[in-house]
Design a protein around this nucleic acid. Structure first.
Lengths: 123, 123
DNA sequence: CTGTATCCCTCGGGATACTG
DNA sequence: CAGTATCCCGAGGGATACAG
């Protein structure tokens, strides 16, 4: 079967890995409201280093998820914007984001229960 | 705002990272058809090492995504199964999976175009 | 402002061997 | 069968300095 990520050599697997990346989810999410400049993205995605931001943006551009537009002005101005492909991707990503927010409490509770259990069972 | 993954200290961010993990996506996907034994999961998720499989399974159990059931028989038999929370998660994850499969070709093409562009521009 | 270039160090995760 | 325990390597990614 084509495009089966359960096969280790399938390119779909790499793609899945890329879009599942924490930074990718956040960056694509940040751009759903419209184009943003380099620095703007950095500010929205708290904690990302400049290096990683650059790397992630470039690979997203390469994958056809984003478009990069450089304005020949001084100081430089560069905008990043979702392509159609990127906007398509934004939907499932947003669902994941919503799921995380919605179920955060349950997960936190589950963790606490699990940890308590293990501390107690540590007889 | 609560549950904002754009804040680096928000727990939702960690959760998003966890569920976005390549192995998590594949494991949860593999379990949507029903419970599986440890070795079965390992076989379905091609390329995962035993260590990582164990780690990922444990953290998913801790997060309340999976239930682990050990049968006191010899040889040991352990089954992993999605919780209700896990089944809820399976949906958005499946969408991501489908997206990746559906758009793999476009991404591959975009990469080729990007690389060609860059090779040419490398004057 | 928007990157590029290094240094460097942590840690994810593979390989292997052993246990209940 | 289902793990646990080590060893160990390479990549990810932070900090910092510099460039167009």
């Amino acid at each position: 079967m084509l495009g089966n990520p359960y096969d280790r050599d399938c390119p779909t697997r790499q793609l899945l890995d890329r879009i599942g990346d924490q930074w990718t989810v956040l960056i694509v999410g940040a751009l759903t409201d419209g184009p943003l400049r380099f620095t703007e993205i950095g500010k929205r995605v708290d904690g990302i280093s400049q290096k990683v931001l650059t790397q992630t943006l470039r690979s997203l551009v390469r994958d056809g998820i984003l478009i990069r537009t450089a304005y020949p002005v001084i100081p430089p101005k560069v905008e990043y914007e979702l392509t159609q492909l990127g906007r398509n991707l934004a939907e499932p990503l947003d669902l994941l984001d919503r799921w995380a927010r919605r179920n955060m409490d349950q997960v936190t509770a589950a963790r606490a229960a699990y940890d308590a259990e293990n501390a107690a069972t540590a007889s």
